[in-house]
Design a protein around this nucleic acid. Structure first.
Lengths: 183, 183
DNA sequence: ACGCACATGTAAGCCGTTACATGATTAC
DNA sequence: GTAATCATGTAACGGCTTACATGTGCGT
Protein backbone atom coordinates (compact mmCIF):
# COMPACT_ATOMS: atom_id res chain seq x y z
CA UNK A 1 0.00 0.00 0.00
CA UNK A 2 2.87 2.36 0.68
CA UNK A 3 4.34 2.60 -2.77
CA UNK A 4 1.47 4.96 -3.54
CA UNK A 5 2.38 7.10 -0.55
CA UNK A 6 6.03 7.17 -1.52
CA UNK A 7 5.03 8.36 -4.96
CA UNK A 8 2.75 11.00 -3.41
CA UNK A 9 5.59 12.21 -1.20
CA UNK A 10 7.78 12.52 -4.25
CA UNK A 11 5.15 14.11 -6.54
CA UNK A 12 4.05 16.65 -3.97
CA UNK A 13 7.29 18.60 -4.48
CA UNK A 14 6.66 19.13 -8.16
CA UNK A 15 4.61 17.49 -10.95
CA UNK A 16 6.54 14.86 -12.85
CA UNK A 17 6.29 11.90 -15.23
CA UNK A 18 6.54 8.15 -14.74
CA UNK A 19 9.87 8.14 -16.48
CA UNK A 20 11.30 10.78 -14.17
CA UNK A 21 9.92 8.96 -11.15
CA UNK A 22 11.69 5.79 -12.18
CA UNK A 23 14.96 7.71 -12.27
CA UNK A 24 14.22 9.31 -8.89
CA UNK A 25 13.57 5.89 -7.40
CA UNK A 26 16.88 4.63 -8.72
CA UNK A 27 18.98 7.59 -7.75
CA UNK A 28 17.53 9.24 -4.68
CA UNK A 29 14.82 7.08 -3.18
CA UNK A 30 16.54 3.70 -3.58
CA UNK A 31 18.21 3.94 -0.16
CA UNK A 32 14.83 3.54 1.54
CA UNK A 33 12.31 2.47 -1.10
CA UNK A 34 12.81 0.28 -4.13
CA UNK A 35 10.30 -0.07 -6.91
CA UNK A 36 10.56 -1.25 -10.49
CA UNK A 37 9.52 0.65 -13.57
CA UNK A 38 6.52 -1.65 -14.03
CA UNK A 39 5.37 -1.13 -10.46
CA UNK A 40 5.57 2.63 -10.78
CA UNK A 41 3.56 2.90 -14.00
CA UNK A 42 0.90 0.53 -12.68
CA UNK A 43 0.66 2.41 -9.40
CA UNK A 44 0.34 5.74 -11.19
CA UNK A 45 -2.66 4.36 -13.12
CA UNK A 46 -4.31 3.17 -9.93
CA UNK A 47 -3.68 6.44 -8.15
CA UNK A 48 -5.20 8.38 -11.02
CA UNK A 49 -8.28 6.12 -10.91
CA UNK A 50 -8.65 6.86 -7.21
CA UNK A 51 -8.29 10.58 -7.80
CA UNK A 52 -5.09 11.00 -5.78
CA UNK A 53 -3.23 12.39 -8.79
CA UNK A 54 -4.14 13.90 -12.16
CA UNK A 55 -2.26 13.14 -15.36
CA UNK A 56 -1.89 15.60 -18.20
CA UNK A 57 -0.68 14.62 -21.68
CA UNK A 58 2.15 16.84 -22.84
CA UNK A 59 2.90 16.87 -26.55
CA UNK A 60 6.60 17.18 -27.31
CA UNK A 61 8.19 17.65 -30.70
CA UNK A 62 11.80 16.88 -29.91
CA UNK A 63 11.00 13.85 -27.74
CA UNK A 64 8.22 11.26 -27.32
CA UNK A 65 5.11 12.65 -25.66
CA UNK A 66 4.81 12.31 -21.92
CA UNK A 67 2.21 12.34 -19.16
CA UNK A 68 2.72 14.82 -16.37
CA UNK A 69 1.20 13.91 -13.00
CA UNK A 70 0.30 16.27 -10.19
CA UNK A 71 -1.12 15.58 -6.71
CA UNK A 72 -4.79 16.49 -6.16
CA UNK A 73 -6.35 17.87 -2.98
CA UNK A 74 -7.57 14.37 -2.19
CA UNK A 75 -4.08 13.02 -2.77
CA UNK A 76 -2.56 15.54 -0.39
CA UNK A 77 -5.11 14.68 2.27
CA UNK A 78 -4.44 10.98 1.77
CA UNK A 79 -0.71 11.58 2.21
CA UNK A 80 -1.13 13.68 5.34
CA UNK A 81 -3.49 11.16 6.92
CA UNK A 82 -0.94 8.43 6.26
CA UNK A 83 1.96 10.49 7.59
CA UNK A 84 0.56 10.75 11.10
CA UNK A 85 0.05 6.99 11.46
CA UNK A 86 2.75 4.92 13.16
CA UNK A 87 4.79 2.64 10.92
CA UNK A 88 6.73 -0.54 11.50
CA UNK A 89 10.38 -1.17 10.67
CA UNK A 90 10.95 -2.67 7.23
CA UNK A 91 11.28 -6.41 6.85
CA UNK A 92 14.78 -7.43 5.82
CA UNK A 93 15.53 -10.39 3.57
CA UNK A 94 19.23 -10.37 2.91
CA UNK A 95 20.47 -13.38 0.96
CA UNK A 96 24.12 -12.56 1.56
CA UNK A 97 23.71 -13.05 5.29
CA UNK A 98 22.12 -16.46 4.81
CA UNK A 99 25.12 -17.35 2.67
CA UNK A 100 27.50 -16.17 5.38
CA UNK A 101 25.56 -18.21 7.94
CA UNK A 102 26.10 -21.35 5.87
CA UNK A 103 29.46 -20.23 4.48
CA UNK A 104 31.33 -23.07 6.19
CA UNK A 105 29.68 -25.51 3.76
CA UNK A 106 31.45 -24.20 0.65
CA UNK A 107 34.83 -22.97 -0.53
CA UNK A 108 35.72 -19.80 1.35
CA UNK A 109 36.89 -18.19 -1.89
CA UNK A 110 33.24 -18.08 -2.98
CA UNK A 111 32.20 -16.20 0.14
CA UNK A 112 35.16 -13.86 -0.13
CA UNK A 113 34.28 -13.01 -3.74
CA UNK A 114 30.68 -12.28 -2.77
CA UNK A 115 31.77 -10.04 0.10
CA UNK A 116 34.09 -8.12 -2.20
CA UNK A 117 31.33 -7.72 -4.75
CA UNK A 118 29.00 -6.38 -2.09
CA UNK A 119 31.64 -4.09 -0.66
CA UNK A 120 32.17 -2.53 -4.08
CA UNK A 121 28.45 -2.14 -4.63
CA UNK A 122 27.96 -0.26 -1.37
CA UNK A 123 31.14 1.77 -1.84
CA UNK A 124 29.82 2.94 -5.20
CA UNK A 125 26.46 3.93 -3.78
CA UNK A 126 28.18 5.70 -0.90
CA UNK A 127 30.25 7.77 -3.29
CA UNK A 128 27.13 8.55 -5.26
CA UNK A 129 25.41 9.81 -2.13
CA UNK A 130 28.44 11.90 -1.12
CA UNK A 131 28.32 13.48 -4.55
CA UNK A 132 24.61 14.26 -4.15
CA UNK A 133 25.41 15.77 -0.76
CA UNK A 134 28.00 18.09 -2.24
CA UNK A 135 25.86 19.03 -5.23
CA UNK A 136 22.55 19.70 -3.52
CA UNK A 137 23.09 20.11 0.20
CA UNK A 138 26.04 22.47 0.51
CA UNK A 139 24.29 25.25 2.34
CA UNK A 140 21.78 23.63 4.66
CA UNK A 141 21.24 26.62 6.93
CA UNK A 142 19.62 28.61 4.16
CA UNK A 143 17.78 25.62 2.65
CA UNK A 144 14.01 25.17 2.74
CA UNK A 145 12.42 22.98 5.38
CA UNK A 146 11.57 20.44 2.71
CA UNK A 147 15.22 20.32 1.63
CA UNK A 148 16.35 19.78 5.21
CA UNK A 149 13.98 16.86 5.64
CA UNK A 150 15.19 15.44 2.34
CA UNK A 151 18.76 15.75 3.60
CA UNK A 152 17.85 13.59 6.61
CA UNK A 153 16.87 10.79 4.21
CA UNK A 154 20.17 11.19 2.38
CA UNK A 155 21.97 10.93 5.71
CA UNK A 156 20.20 7.62 6.24
CA UNK A 157 21.46 6.41 2.88
CA UNK A 158 25.00 7.53 3.62
CA UNK A 159 25.05 5.83 7.02
CA UNK A 160 23.50 2.67 5.61
CA UNK A 161 26.01 2.26 2.81
CA UNK A 162 28.98 3.23 4.98
CA UNK A 163 27.92 0.68 7.59
CA UNK A 164 27.70 -2.05 4.98
CA UNK A 165 31.17 -1.24 3.67
CA UNK A 166 32.55 -1.43 7.20
CA UNK A 167 30.86 -4.75 7.91
CA UNK A 168 32.18 -6.20 4.65
CA UNK A 169 35.65 -4.98 5.59
CA UNK A 170 35.62 -6.48 9.06
CA UNK A 171 34.26 -9.75 7.70
CA UNK A 172 36.89 -9.84 4.94
CA UNK A 173 39.60 -9.12 7.50
CA UNK A 174 38.41 -12.05 9.57
CA UNK A 175 38.30 -14.31 6.48
CA UNK A 176 41.82 -13.32 5.49
CA UNK A 177 43.11 -13.88 9.01
CA UNK A 178 41.54 -17.33 8.95
CA UNK A 179 43.37 -18.19 5.75
CA UNK A 180 46.72 -17.24 7.28
CA UNK A 181 46.23 -19.54 10.23
CA UNK A 182 45.39 -22.41 7.88
CA UNK A 183 48.54 -22.08 5.73
CA UNK B 1 12.50 -18.62 -3.31
CA UNK B 2 15.08 -17.95 -0.65
CA UNK B 3 12.99 -18.56 2.42
CA UNK B 4 13.47 -22.24 1.66
CA UNK B 5 17.24 -21.75 1.54
CA UNK B 6 17.25 -19.82 4.77
CA UNK B 7 15.38 -22.68 6.41
CA UNK B 8 17.83 -25.17 4.92
CA UNK B 9 20.77 -23.15 6.26
CA UNK B 10 19.17 -23.21 9.68
CA UNK B 11 18.10 -26.87 9.62
CA UNK B 12 21.46 -28.12 8.41
CA UNK B 13 22.98 -27.46 11.83
CA UNK B 14 20.57 -29.78 13.59
CA UNK B 15 17.11 -31.24 12.97
CA UNK B 16 14.34 -29.11 14.40
CA UNK B 17 10.59 -28.40 14.37
CA UNK B 18 8.48 -25.66 12.83
CA UNK B 19 7.85 -24.23 16.24
CA UNK B 20 11.55 -23.99 17.05
CA UNK B 21 12.23 -22.46 13.64
CA UNK B 22 9.69 -19.73 14.29
CA UNK B 23 11.52 -18.85 17.49
CA UNK B 24 14.88 -18.89 15.69
CA UNK B 25 13.53 -16.55 13.06
CA UNK B 26 12.33 -14.14 15.71
CA UNK B 27 15.40 -14.21 17.89
CA UNK B 28 18.45 -14.91 15.79
CA UNK B 29 17.59 -14.69 12.11
CA UNK B 30 15.35 -11.60 12.25
CA UNK B 31 18.29 -9.24 11.68
CA UNK B 32 18.63 -10.47 8.11
CA UNK B 33 15.54 -12.55 7.31
CA UNK B 34 11.98 -12.12 8.47
CA UNK B 35 9.28 -14.70 8.04
CA UNK B 36 5.97 -15.30 9.76
CA UNK B 37 4.84 -18.49 11.45
CA UNK B 38 2.42 -19.19 8.61
CA UNK B 39 5.08 -18.77 5.98
CA UNK B 40 7.44 -21.14 7.76
CA UNK B 41 4.95 -23.97 8.16
CA UNK B 42 3.80 -23.64 4.56
CA UNK B 43 7.38 -23.59 3.30
CA UNK B 44 8.26 -26.68 5.36
CA UNK B 45 5.40 -28.57 3.69
CA UNK B 46 6.59 -27.53 0.24
CA UNK B 47 10.17 -28.45 1.00
CA UNK B 48 9.14 -31.86 2.21
CA UNK B 49 7.14 -32.40 -1.01
CA UNK B 50 10.23 -31.55 -3.01
CA UNK B 51 12.35 -33.92 -0.98
CA UNK B 52 14.67 -31.26 0.43
CA UNK B 53 13.77 -32.20 4.00
CA UNK B 54 12.19 -35.16 5.80
CA UNK B 55 9.73 -34.82 8.64
CA UNK B 56 9.40 -37.33 11.43
CA UNK B 57 6.48 -37.38 13.86
CA UNK B 58 7.66 -37.44 17.44
CA UNK B 59 5.14 -38.55 20.08
CA UNK B 60 5.51 -36.66 23.33
CA UNK B 61 3.68 -37.36 26.56
CA UNK B 62 4.47 -34.20 28.50
CA UNK B 63 3.82 -31.88 25.55
CA UNK B 64 1.86 -31.82 22.28
CA UNK B 65 3.37 -34.03 19.58
CA UNK B 66 5.78 -32.44 17.16
CA UNK B 67 7.28 -32.98 13.73
CA UNK B 68 11.06 -33.07 13.53
CA UNK B 69 12.58 -32.04 10.20
CA UNK B 70 16.03 -32.96 8.90
CA UNK B 71 17.81 -31.98 5.67
CA UNK B 72 18.12 -34.71 3.02
CA UNK B 73 21.07 -35.27 0.68
CA UNK B 74 19.07 -33.53 -2.03
CA UNK B 75 18.40 -30.64 0.32
CA UNK B 76 22.09 -30.25 1.14
CA UNK B 77 22.97 -30.27 -2.54
CA UNK B 78 20.25 -27.69 -3.22
CA UNK B 79 21.65 -25.46 -0.48
CA UNK B 80 25.25 -25.75 -1.68
CA UNK B 81 24.28 -25.03 -5.28
CA UNK B 82 22.46 -21.92 -4.14
CA UNK B 83 25.33 -20.78 -1.90
CA UNK B 84 27.78 -20.42 -4.77
CA UNK B 85 25.47 -18.25 -6.84
CA UNK B 86 25.82 -14.47 -6.63
CA UNK B 87 23.04 -12.63 -4.81
CA UNK B 88 21.71 -9.11 -5.00
CA UNK B 89 21.33 -6.67 -2.11
CA UNK B 90 17.96 -6.78 -0.39
CA UNK B 91 15.23 -4.40 -1.45
CA UNK B 92 14.44 -1.86 1.24
CA UNK B 93 10.99 -0.41 1.82
CA UNK B 94 11.22 1.79 4.86
CA UNK B 95 8.04 3.74 5.58
CA UNK B 96 9.68 5.90 8.24
CA UNK B 97 12.02 7.43 5.68
CA UNK B 98 9.13 8.32 3.38
CA UNK B 99 7.53 10.03 6.35
CA UNK B 100 10.71 11.95 7.06
CA UNK B 101 10.90 12.97 3.42
CA UNK B 102 7.42 14.47 3.63
CA UNK B 103 7.74 15.43 7.30
CA UNK B 104 7.47 19.16 6.55
CA UNK B 105 3.78 18.63 5.68
CA UNK B 106 2.70 17.72 9.22
CA UNK B 107 3.25 18.72 12.82
CA UNK B 108 6.87 18.07 13.76
CA UNK B 109 5.79 16.50 17.06
CA UNK B 110 4.38 13.58 15.06
CA UNK B 111 7.71 12.97 13.35
CA UNK B 112 9.60 13.35 16.61
CA UNK B 113 7.38 10.76 18.32
CA UNK B 114 7.91 8.31 15.47
CA UNK B 115 11.67 8.79 15.60
CA UNK B 116 11.69 8.19 19.32
CA UNK B 117 9.61 5.06 18.93
CA UNK B 118 11.99 3.75 16.29
CA UNK B 119 15.03 4.64 18.37
CA UNK B 120 13.66 2.62 21.27
CA UNK B 121 12.86 -0.33 19.05
CA UNK B 122 16.38 -0.50 17.65
CA UNK B 123 17.96 0.12 21.04
CA UNK B 124 16.06 -2.86 22.43
CA UNK B 125 17.13 -5.12 19.59
CA UNK B 126 20.70 -3.92 19.96
CA UNK B 127 20.73 -4.83 23.63
CA UNK B 128 19.24 -8.21 22.79
CA UNK B 129 22.05 -8.86 20.31
CA UNK B 130 24.71 -7.76 22.79
CA UNK B 131 23.26 -10.23 25.25
CA UNK B 132 23.40 -13.01 22.66
CA UNK B 133 27.00 -12.04 21.96
CA UNK B 134 27.95 -12.40 25.62
CA UNK B 135 26.02 -15.63 26.09
CA UNK B 136 27.10 -17.56 23.00
CA UNK B 137 30.17 -15.93 21.49
CA UNK B 138 32.50 -15.33 24.43
CA UNK B 139 35.38 -17.49 23.26
CA UNK B 140 35.51 -17.17 19.49
CA UNK B 141 39.04 -18.49 19.06
CA UNK B 142 38.07 -21.94 20.22
CA UNK B 143 34.65 -21.90 18.50
CA UNK B 144 33.76 -24.06 15.51
CA UNK B 145 33.94 -22.64 12.00
CA UNK B 146 30.15 -22.73 11.84
CA UNK B 147 29.94 -20.68 15.05
CA UNK B 148 32.38 -18.12 13.68
CA UNK B 149 30.33 -17.68 10.54
CA UNK B 150 27.22 -17.35 12.68
CA UNK B 151 28.97 -14.66 14.70
CA UNK B 152 29.54 -12.68 11.51
CA UNK B 153 25.77 -12.54 10.99
CA UNK B 154 25.31 -11.36 14.56
CA UNK B 155 27.87 -8.63 13.92
CA UNK B 156 25.73 -7.50 11.01
CA UNK B 157 22.72 -7.31 13.30
CA UNK B 158 24.64 -5.35 15.91
CA UNK B 159 25.99 -2.86 13.38
CA UNK B 160 22.59 -2.47 11.75
CA UNK B 161 20.74 -1.69 14.96
CA UNK B 162 23.50 0.55 16.31
CA UNK B 163 23.52 2.51 13.06
CA UNK B 164 19.77 3.03 13.23
CA UNK B 165 19.99 4.29 16.81
CA UNK B 166 22.68 6.77 15.78
CA UNK B 167 20.70 8.03 12.81
CA UNK B 168 17.61 8.48 14.97
CA UNK B 169 19.73 10.40 17.47
CA UNK B 170 21.25 12.72 14.91
CA UNK B 171 17.86 13.33 13.34
CA UNK B 172 16.25 14.02 16.71
CA UNK B 173 19.11 16.40 17.56
CA UNK B 174 18.45 18.28 14.36
CA UNK B 175 14.70 18.39 15.05
CA UNK B 176 15.26 19.72 18.55
CA UNK B 177 17.69 22.34 17.28
CA UNK B 178 15.08 23.44 14.77
CA UNK B 179 12.51 23.92 17.50
CA UNK B 180 14.84 26.17 19.45
CA UNK B 181 15.40 28.47 16.51
CA UNK B 182 11.64 28.76 16.00
CA UNK B 183 10.87 29.77 19.59
C1' DA C 1 22.55 1.35 -39.51
C1' DC C 2 23.00 1.16 -34.67
C1' DG C 3 22.87 2.38 -29.95
C1' DC C 4 21.20 5.28 -26.41
C1' DA C 5 18.03 8.14 -23.89
C1' DC C 6 13.31 9.07 -23.67
C1' DA C 7 8.69 7.29 -22.73
C1' DT C 8 4.83 4.03 -21.49
C1' DG C 9 2.64 0.07 -20.87
C1' DT C 10 0.50 -5.58 -20.11
C1' DA C 11 0.26 -10.11 -17.85
C1' DA C 12 1.49 -14.43 -15.28
C1' DG C 13 3.10 -16.28 -11.27
C1' DC C 14 5.11 -16.32 -6.88
C1' DC C 15 5.54 -14.69 -2.26
C1' DG C 16 4.22 -12.30 1.88
C1' DT C 17 0.49 -10.45 4.77
C1' DT C 18 -3.62 -10.94 7.21
C1' DA C 19 -7.17 -13.42 9.18
C1' DC C 20 -8.82 -17.56 10.76
C1' DA C 21 -8.49 -22.08 13.28
C1' DT C 22 -7.48 -25.79 16.73
C1' DG C 23 -5.79 -28.23 20.58
C1' DA C 24 -2.58 -30.07 24.59
C1' DT C 25 -0.05 -29.26 28.90
C1' DT C 26 1.84 -26.63 32.76
C1' DA C 27 1.77 -23.22 36.34
C1' DC C 28 -0.69 -20.07 39.26
C1' DG D 1 -10.41 -21.25 35.56
C1' DT D 2 -7.27 -18.90 32.99
C1' DA D 3 -3.02 -17.41 31.12
C1' DA D 4 1.24 -18.89 29.01
C1' DT D 5 3.84 -22.05 26.38
C1' DC D 6 4.00 -25.65 23.19
C1' DA D 7 2.56 -27.13 18.60
C1' DT D 8 0.57 -27.12 13.81
C1' DG D 9 -2.03 -25.82 10.29
C1' DT D 10 -5.69 -23.40 6.08
C1' DA D 11 -7.19 -19.79 2.87
C1' DA D 12 -7.89 -15.25 0.61
C1' DC D 13 -5.87 -11.26 -0.92
C1' DG D 14 -2.69 -8.07 -2.52
C1' DG D 15 1.81 -6.64 -3.96
C1' DC D 16 6.30 -7.58 -6.09
C1' DT D 17 9.10 -9.95 -9.58
C1' DT D 18 9.94 -11.40 -14.07
C1' DA D 19 9.16 -11.50 -18.73
C1' DC D 20 7.21 -9.44 -22.50
C1' DA D 21 6.02 -5.44 -25.56
C1' DT D 22 6.23 -1.05 -28.32
C1' DG D 23 7.65 3.19 -30.17
C1' DT D 24 10.16 8.18 -30.85
C1' DG D 25 14.10 11.12 -31.69
C1' DC D 26 19.06 12.15 -31.57
C1' DG D 27 23.85 11.41 -32.40
C1' DT D 28 27.54 9.00 -34.85
Amino acid sequence: MSLAHTILASLVHHPTTGYELVKDFNERIACYWQASQQQIYRELSRMEEQGWIEGERVIQSDRPNKKLYRVTELGLKTLKDWLVQPSNPAAIREELLVKVLAGYLVDIAVIRAELERRRNYHQLRLEHYYQTEQEHFQDLDSATLSMQFTYRTLRRGIRYEADWVEWCDETLDWLNGMDQSNV
